[in-house]
Structure formats: C-alpha cells, structure tokens
C-alpha cells in the first residue's frame, strides 16, 4: 500500500507573473482541486482518495500559501483567468474541476468563462451566490478559531480537525495569514458573492454536481439550491451531519460521490 506521503509530488510552474505551487498525485484523467478560504492544507486524505481514479492537481491559488499574488490579480474572475491560463499552459484542456468554498466560486466562474477547457464541474459548498433567506456567515469579524470550528459539523470527532488545527493555534500571522488576506481582498464587499453570477451560470453547459453539507453554518444550504437552479441540468447532493468542510469531515464519502459523478 502506498502511503499518502509517497502518493504525490510537489511541482512549481512559472505562470502569469508568479510561480504556481501545486501538489500532484494519482493516475488517470486530470482533476483540478481548488481549495477554500484559508488556503492549501497540503495533501489530504481526501486528495488521496480521489487520486485512486484520477490525476489530482491541487494548487495553492495565487495569494495563498506558497503561490505569491501577481500584482494584477485582485478578484475571483482574475483567479478564473489564471487557472484557464494554467490549463492551457499544462495542456490539460478537458479536465474536471472540483472547487471548495471560494475555490468553488472560482470553478463556477471558470465554467462561465471558458467551458471548452473543462469537462465536468463539481461545486462543494461554493461561495459566490447570495442567499435570499439568510446571510453567508461573516467570517471576518470573529476570531478565526471560531470560524474554523463553525465550519465543522462536529469538530471534536473529526481526526482532520485535530490534525490540521489541533496544534498550537496561530490566530494571527503564520502560514494561513496570506490566505485570509487574499480572501478578504477578493471577497470583502460584496461579501462572498457576485450578484451577476446566477445570471451568468445560465450559460454553463457542463455536467455539474453541487455538493452541500446539510449542516453548513458558513454558507447556508440554500446557496446549494440556488446554484442547482442557476446551472441547467445540475444535480444537488446534500451530505447529512456535515458542515462546510466535507473534505475534512467526510472525505471518503465525498470522494466517492465525486468519483461516481466523474466516472466516464
């Protein structure tokens, strides 16, 4: 059996006035996995599960972690342009995309922008759409530890929570500060949505799976339904007893749902 530590490699690619940092592992059809608000958390068991049936590309977005922000890159739309640039440079046209939170918003914007580069789209608890019945929880005015805990349905029983956040807690600074900063730069106002996105999503013709944690207290499940309604033919899969981070809390189940959807 291959351990997670051996199952992937680090790559760096000079691109668009920065150097893209990514982890790559597995074999099969290329699958781009776009992380969420705080940034890249390394090679996860979730990545490992996906890598059983795909070549997983898990980059750190510009401005997050080890990928510096190019001066010109300020918005979600810019991120989408950046990743199309990456796809074209790496000759990966026709790949699948899975995006989490802000990464989901980037993926949705990529699908609007240039669907020819993509095959199938998976949006997991994606930001980008304004709910009508409630609000996206404001993560920028409470301590980050509370944001993290709120992201889990039950943090205490989740091994990934303890592995990633259980050590000495760094509220400020540290490796996650760049990611928080980039998120606030892109998503502060309006907070975590683009009011034009639902209208633009009508253009998306890709097979699309929307996945939501039924217990998501950051981005309400209503947003999952709005995404499904906006994208023609999209299907919605809700995960019970799961919060904003199924990739941490329900990695096996989530990977399985995604693999079923992506299977040829």
């Amino acid at each position: 059996m291959t351990t997670a530590a051996q199952a992937y490699q680090e790559e760096r690619m000079a691109l668009a006035d920065t150097e893209l940092y990514l982890l790559k592992g597995g074999e099969g059809r290329p699958l781009l996995v776009l992380h969420g608000v705080e940034g890249h958390e390394g090679w996860l068991p979730f990545h490992d599960a996906l890598a059983a049936k795909a070549t997983v590309y898990a980059p750190a977005h510009p401005g997050y972690g080890e990928t510096a922000r190019p001066e010109w890159l300020e918005t979600i739309v810019h991120q989408a342009v950046f990743y199309h640039w990456f796809i074209e440079r790496a000759s990966l046209a026709g790949l699948d995309v899975v995006g989490f939170g802000i990464g989901g918003w980037i993926a949705a914007q990529m699908a609007v922008m240039c669907p020819q580069n993509l095959r199938r789209l998976v949006l997991v608890n994606a930001a980008g759409v304004r709910p009508r019945e409630s609000d996206i929880f404001d993560i920028f005015i409470i301590p980050w530890k509370q944001v993290i805990e709120r992201g889990f349905y039950d943090a205490e029983v989740c091994p990934e929570y303890h592995r990633l956040y259980g050590g000495e807690w760094q509220e400020f600074g540290g490796p996650r500060e760049a990611g928080r900063t980039m998120s606030i730069r892109m998503c502060f106002r309006p907070f975590m949505y683009d009011s034009s996105l639902p209208g633009m999503l009508g253009k998306v013709t890709l097979p699309t799976l929307v996945v939501w944690g039924a217990g998501n207290h950051i981005i309400p499940p209503e947003c999952g339904r709005l995404y499904q309604q906006a994208i023609p033919g999209a299907t919605l899969h809700e995960i019970e007893r799961c919060g904003h981070w199924p990739q941490f809390e329900r990695a096996e189940e989530l990977a399985s749902v995604i693999q079923t959807f992506l299977a040829p």
Binding site: I141, P143, E171, T181, S183, I184
Partner: peptide, 21 residues
C-alpha cells in the same frame, strides 16, 4: 473588542499585524 478587529487580514503587513494585535 475582539483583537482581530484591530487588524483584520490584509490591514497591515503580517509582521506589523502581530505587533498591533
């Protein structure tokens, strides 16, 4: 106030943010 209101992400350079907070 919660300390992070003094210097939300991006408000100051990371080093300075640490001092302020």
């Amino acid at each position: 106030q919660p300390r992070e209101w003094m210097a939300p992400p991006g408000y100051a350079t990371v080093n300075v943010a640490g001092i302020r907070r």
